[in-house]
Nucleic acid binder design. Structure first.
Lengths: 109, 109
DNA sequence: CCGCATCCAAGCCGATACTG
DNA sequence: CAGTATCGGCTTGGATGCGG
């Protein structure tokens, strides 16, 4: 378990959720993975203007936290696919609410 | 509007939500304010081991983002009460989901 | 009682160049 | 194609002490 998550444990369940999901690009990536499995490059183009390094870090943390599954195919050229674990799939209602709330927030301000 | 929120606008509504709610202690504070209005000291004791400075900053950002209302009473000793705006109240289902998910996450790992 | 000022440490995130 | 290496700025959160 990553340190931020462990620290949040001592506070409150909502802080645990924020510790897992709170990073930049993380929920954007999850949002696309809720639709279907993506290759790395696909995901990068989908989420927008993110550098490979930054997206890699976000995905690695989500993998450590048990949200994302990473599958490497021993091919040339290399292929790596990202998909959601069962735990990741369980985020669907949260992502839907956050998307709706963010949309309404923008319209309200 | 704060810079992180503006930057998230260009990406996706979920990133907007994370930009507003993603800071440490923020949703813990909102969680207690969903129950009732709190004075500053009450809130500090409720959320746990947070320094006044850190909690103040979190609340100020939530105020800037339109989530929290701050009411100062011209008394001695001073009294400051925090409550939720209508926008803040609209977070209730999200906070409930995040709390449930965080709880399940801890049990699953 | 509330919270600001100052200073500080850590970590996040980005740009660029390079590799199996 | 899917990353890693390296460097660096900037934001975030914390400790401590003072002020209205």
């Amino acid at each position: 378990m990553r340190d931020p998550v462990r620290a949040a444990l001592a506070v409150c369940p909502v802080e645990v959720s924020i510790a897992v999901l709170g990073g930049a690009w993380k929920l954007s990536a999850v949002r696309y993975l809720l639709v279907r499995t993506h290759r790395f490059g696909e995901l990068q183009r989908a989420v927008g203007d993110v550098t490979p390094r930054t997206l890699t870090r976000a995905l690695r943390e989500l993998e450590t936290d048990g949200i994302v599954r990473r599958t490497v195919y021993a091919e040339v050229p290399p292929r790596v696919e990202y998909s959601l674990t069962e735990l990741g799939e369980s985020l669907r209602p949260i992502v839907d609410w956050l998307e709706k709330w963010g949309h309404d927030y923008v319209n309200a301000t």
